[in-house]
Simulated assay, not measured.
Amino acid sequence: MLYRGGVLGSAIVSLAMMCQASVAVAEPDSYPATEQIGVTTLRLVDSDRADPWKPSARRELNVTIHYPTANADSYPLADTVVPWSPNTVLPSQSHLNAPVDGAAGALPVLLFQPGANLPVQTGTSMAENLAGHGYAVVSIDDTHGSFPGTAFPDGHIEPFEGSAGEDFVTASAARVGDIHFVLDELSALTHGSDPDADGAALPAGLGTALDMSKIGMYGHSLGGIMTFYSDPRVRAGVSLDGWADPAQPGELTPGLAADPERPLLFLLRPAADPATRRQILDRMCAGRTGWTRELVLAGTRHWDFTDLDYLPRSVMSAPLLSDQVGAIAPERAHAVVNAYLTAMFDHFLRGRPEPLLDNPDPGFPEITFGA
């Protein structure tokens, strides 16, 4: 069964608490290898596709791109404020619309999708870390499926549609279309087009920096499941605590096509029911011939794979939220996740040897091979 775990209700409670009071949010102890990260946000409109949550409108996407930059002190830091909230999920370390660092060379492209109902801001720190290692990280918000709403660069906000709360059949179909459309738009960008619906100026060097021959994808929960079913152009994927039974009615949209040869890494929390999860993963991976690893990160629960893990424990100890984070410290959870994300894409997109993917490592005793 696709992990729901009261995600919608928990998200509403958590974000409502953030809206009601100013809370101090912890920050990671360390940031990426590069000195500075740039970020830009595009508004993309798919004129050929209706929005599944609002059929009277065309599908409109908020797409955030993190990338390496340099000498960007004159560019302001971006914010990660959730719509209608005075608070950020996690303070951004990225400079808004700063030019791409030409010395970084060609940038492999990584797509990111958050969990169901969660805003894309819950993945900021991981996107910044990967950008710091020489990737262009393209985060795709789920318009009308993200609580409490999606804010676009022109200032307008598309609110969450309640029907999106538990409808993963529609959500998975929408996300497959989003991935395909965004990759098409990024390809157009590399050929000199500006795909932004408002014609906004793009950061200098962005189009020429993207290496569309090296595309990976990672995501949390439903976003992680979509790495399994994403566009054929995606060459490697990482699912952060996401799995689903494709044969179970109501789990995913029927007819999703998985690439059996795409390398996939599952990075999972300890299972409450290991036998059931084993059955689901076996059905999900039936017929796979590509490289596959299943790793379990001790001490984690579902939100430890997101920036919500950095919310104060006084917030996360509230009813409905306490079972979303585990005993592991947020800084340690993210250090481990970031290490395996980087290793996965460095190996499969850049061809670098990465022993971390093949055997237990004494530097990461929290990791167990096999789900």
Rank of each mutant, 00 (worst) to 15 (best):
L2A: 05
Y3N: 09
R4T: 11
R4E: 15
L8W: 10
S10G: 14
V13M: 08
C19D: 13
V25W: 01
P28T: 02
S30G: 13
Y31V: 07
G38I: 00
A50F: 05
D51K: 01
W53N: 04
S56M: 05
A57R: 09
A57S: 12
R58I: 05
R59W: 04
L61P: 03
V63E: 07
Y67T: 00
P68H: 01
D73G: 15
P76Y: 10
A78N: 04
D79E: 14
T80R: 15
V81G: 13
V82W: 13
W84T: 08
W84S: 09
P86F: 10
P86C: 13
N87D: 12
Q93F: 05
A98Q: 00
V100R: 00
D101R: 08
G102W: 07
G105H: 04
A106H: 06
L107H: 00
P108H: 11
L110P: 05
L111K: 02
L111F: 14
F112T: 11
P114Q: 02
A116T: 04
Q121G: 13
T122C: 06
T124E: 14
M126A: 15
M126C: 12
L130T: 03
Y135H: 01
Y135I: 00
V138A: 08
T143S: 13
T143C: 14
T150L: 13
G155E: 03
G155T: 02
F160C: 06
D167H: 07
F168N: 10
V169H: 06
A173T: 03
G177N: 12
I179P: 09
E185I: 00
L186I: 04
L189M: 12
H191Q: 14
H191F: 14
G192I: 02
D194Q: 04
A197H: 02
A197R: 01
P203M: 03
A204H: 10
G205A: 08
A209M: 02
D211E: 14
D211A: 15
D211Y: 11
D211S: 14
I215L: 15
Y218D: 08
H220K: 02
H220L: 01
S221N: 09
F228I: 09
Y229P: 10
V234D: 13
R235A: 15
L240F: 03
W243R: 07
W243T: 02
A244Q: 08
D245L: 06
P246S: 01
L256W: 03
P263C: 06
L265I: 04
L268P: 06
R269S: 15
A271D: 15
A272V: 01
P274C: 06
T276A: 15
D282H: 11
R283Q: 12
C285G: 05
C285S: 10
T289H: 04
W291Y: 14
W291G: 09
V296Q: 09
V296R: 02
T300V: 03
H302Y: 06
L308I: 06
D309Y: 04
Y310V: 00
S314L: 12
M316F: 03
S317Y: 09
P319Q: 03
L321Q: 05
S322R: 10
D323H: 13
A329G: 07
R332M: 01
R332K: 09
H334K: 11
L341G: 00
A343R: 07
F345I: 01
L349Y: 09
P353D: 15
L356F: 00
P360G: 14
T368K: 09
T368F: 02
A371R: 07
